[in-house]
Nucleic acid binder design. Structure first.
Length: 284
DNA sequence: CGTTCATCCTGAGAGC
DNA sequence: TGCTCTCAGGATGAAC
């Protein structure tokens, strides 16, 4: 499940292997993958043919190539998306959705089993270097422009549960279910804590942990791609070794030894330590 | 306006 | 063995 660190690994791969190569005749193999490109698949391909990517950028989980036309090739990997750079002629992946030939004899391939992800050609929004579709996405905590105090104030102004706020990409971007659980574990906070009742110090510490856990994942994941193969599917080494809460039901908490519990949350899961992360008293 | 929730999708794995 | 059921979850747009 690609979250910020995994998407950043892909961005670095695209900067290395796609920027500067002209795009050839694009093939859309599954219409759902371009559903957010309103004019349709043929227009999507036409916007890209002959264009040259000049930079690879990212905000949160959104990733885009700036094109020499001034437009952007915007990508969201969703749950299962991958951006691969493969040699031309290599057999298609089972879930290949879009093929973009590059002028150096390789192909950029968008592969996505569950088709929650998408690609589109977008135009600049409020800022000239950010696609219009990303305007509503908050800065992520690894962005040099991210201001911690702005986040802390916005978080405490919300009236919701803290994990809902962490997952709200218009408040802070790049955090998904895995890193939310990890940041809350490090902060000894339960996911249902009320944002309104959190102190400034608690909010600041939570932000620090979110930033740290993603930075650490990036350091591990950033070493796992090489050569032409630009890959992400949530299988960085970090997932094998570094998680303290996510997916660890019944395994001992690394801090106190109590078995980690799984609770249903927004049609998915929340993992936490029942001793270190005390649930808040029921709200009336 | 702020907040919550159903919905999209496919494959792995469990249970029978 | 093959069927059914459950689970994984990011972002959206409708509902409250």
């Amino acid at each position: 499940m690609p979250e910020l660190p995994e998407v950043e690994v892909v961005r670095r791969g695209l900067a290395e292997h796609a920027v500067g190569r002209a795009i050839g005749a694009v093939e859309v193999l599954h219409p759902r993958s371009v559903r957010r490109h309103e004019p349709g698949a043929a227009d999507f391909a036409a916007c890209l043919e002959g264009r040259v990517p000049t930079a690879a950028r990212r905000r949160g989980k959104y990733l885009w190539l700036v094109l020499d036309s001034g437009e952007m090739l915007l990508t969201h990997l969703g749950m299962s998306g991958q951006m691969l750079v493969q040699p031309t002629g290599k057999p298609d992946e089972r879930h290949l959705r879009v093929r973009l030939p590059l002028s150096d004899g390789t192909e950029l391939r968008f592969v996505d089993q569950r088709t929650f992800g998408h690609v589109m050609v977008d135009v600049p929004g409020v800022l000239v270097d950010v696609p219009s579709s990303v305007d509503h996405i908050a800065l992520d905590p690894l962005d040099p422009g991210f201001v911690p105090d702005v986040f802390v104030r916005a978080l405490r102004a919300r009236n919701t549960e803290v994990k809902r706020a962490l997952l709200d990409q218009s408040l802070i971007s790049g955090v998904g279910n895995i890193y939310a659980d990890e940041a809350l574990w490090r902060s000894s906070l339960h996911w249902a804590r009320s944002t309104r009742e959190m102190s400034g110090a608690e909010a600041t510490a939570l932000l620090g942990h979110a930033r740290d856990v993603m930075t650490e994942a990036l350091e591990v994941g950033g070493t796992t791609f090489d050569g032409l193969y630009v890959n992400v599917n949530g299988e960085s080494g970090y997932f094998e070794r570094g998680l303290n809460a996510y997916g660890r039901r019944d395994r001992p908490c690394g801090r106190c030894g109590a078995p980690i519990v799984r609770e249903a949350f927004m049609n998915r899961s929340s993992y936490s330590c029942p001793r270190c992360q005390k649930p808040p008293p029921p709200r009336s």
